[in-house]
Computed example of a mutant assay.
Amino acid sequence: MKKLIPLLILTILFSCNNQAQTNPKQEALKTATPVSVPLEDGMAKAYFASGCFWCVEAIYESVKGVDEVINGYAGGFTKNPTYEQSNTGRTGHAEAVEVIYNPEIVSFETLVDVYFASQNPTQANGQGPDRGSQYRSILFFQNDDQKKIITQKKKALAEKLNATVAAEVYPFQKFWIGEDYHQNYEKLHPENPYIQNVSIPRLNKFKAKMPELLKDKH
């Protein structure tokens, strides 16, 4: 009987997680009409999920033309998600970033290049040590032009690697801003062990790969 109880618990947990991933509301998001975010003071916004948002925030903020990056949640069906809820993997959301950029300086196409150059493109449901659907990779498009850019680059990368590229492609719907303590995390907590051992090495790996895109040091 003791052997059966853990098995039963695992079965229930698997069923719950499986149900979360096949939720009809979640499936509907994949074919929804994309929401276009208008320019504001000449600045555009783009949305990406690629593992822990602390890492992704630092990467995009190192790129010329990017004004600010905000951490939050996107890609799911749950309204007003919290960090704790997102971590259950049952909200449908992934940790994501809102990249506020000047399209006169950096293009959406280049931001997609940054995306693929700064991750392990074949890792499904996570990046590095962060595992689970809340850390999965998603590129969000706001119109047909962006969708075309994403799908073409994803296809080209898959052919180059001769492997499946794990990132999902979603029509953008809504970005939920994360808690204040998650913002500018790498800058504010440089001594944090995770920042030291995961975020900074990932950032430095990207910098070495695409130095021509980096902001000038003052």
Rank of each mutant, 00 (worst) to 15 (best):
residue 171 P to R: 03
residue 195 I to G: 06
residue 122 T to F: 05
residue 196 Q to E: 15
residue 122 T to N: 01
residue 142 Q to M: 12
residue 165 V to P: 02
residue 191 E to K: 15
residue 129 P to D: 15
residue 150 I to R: 01
residue 185 Y to S: 09
residue 194 Y to W: 11
residue 174 K to V: 15
residue 160 K to L: 11
residue 121 P to F: 01
residue 153 K to Y: 12
residue 192 N to T: 08
residue 159 E to L: 13
residue 192 N to H: 14
residue 117 A to E: 08
residue 120 N to P: 00
residue 122 T to E: 11
residue 193 P to Y: 14
residue 177 I to H: 07
residue 134 Q to P: 01
residue 140 F to Q: 13
residue 126 G to Q: 00
residue 183 Q to T: 04
residue 179 E to P: 00
residue 160 K to Y: 06
residue 144 D to G: 04
residue 181 Y to M: 05
residue 126 G to T: 08
residue 162 N to A: 15
residue 181 Y to D: 14
residue 195 I to P: 02
residue 136 R to G: 10
residue 119 Q to N: 12
residue 160 K to D: 14
residue 128 G to P: 00
residue 188 L to I: 11
residue 121 P to D: 02
residue 122 T to S: 00
residue 150 I to K: 07
residue 186 E to V: 15
residue 179 E to Q: 07
residue 178 G to N: 07
residue 189 H to R: 11
residue 120 N to L: 04
residue 122 T to G: 06
residue 129 P to H: 10
residue 149 I to Y: 00
residue 182 H to Q: 09
residue 133 S to A: 10
residue 165 V to Q: 03
residue 144 D to V: 09
residue 184 N to H: 11
residue 169 V to C: 00
residue 183 Q to G: 05
residue 170 Y to R: 06
residue 149 I to C: 10
residue 197 N to G: 14
residue 173 Q to M: 12
residue 177 I to R: 10
residue 169 V to G: 03
residue 185 Y to W: 08
residue 141 F to Q: 08
residue 165 V to F: 03
residue 134 Q to K: 02
residue 153 K to D: 08
residue 130 D to P: 01
residue 141 F to W: 08
residue 130 D to C: 00
residue 132 G to F: 09
residue 174 K to F: 14
residue 119 Q to M: 14
residue 124 A to M: 12
residue 169 V to H: 00
residue 148 K to P: 02
residue 189 H to L: 06
residue 147 K to Y: 07
residue 174 K to L: 14
residue 165 V to G: 07
residue 178 G to E: 03
residue 144 D to C: 04
residue 155 K to L: 12
residue 123 Q to Y: 03
residue 147 K to P: 01
residue 167 A to I: 06
residue 127 Q to Y: 04
residue 143 N to A: 14
residue 189 H to Q: 10
residue 167 A to G: 02
residue 176 W to N: 13
residue 158 A to T: 05
residue 139 L to T: 13
residue 189 H to E: 14
residue 142 Q to R: 12
residue 135 Y to R: 04
residue 177 I to Q: 12
residue 160 K to F: 05
residue 159 E to D: 15
residue 123 Q to P: 00
residue 142 Q to K: 12
residue 131 R to E: 13
residue 119 Q to K: 02
residue 129 P to E: 15
residue 117 A to W: 02
residue 169 V to D: 05
residue 180 D to M: 00
residue 171 P to C: 10
residue 155 K to D: 15
residue 128 G to I: 07
residue 181 Y to Q: 10
residue 129 P to F: 13
residue 192 N to P: 02
residue 165 V to I: 11
residue 165 V to K: 03
residue 177 I to K: 11
residue 124 A to C: 03
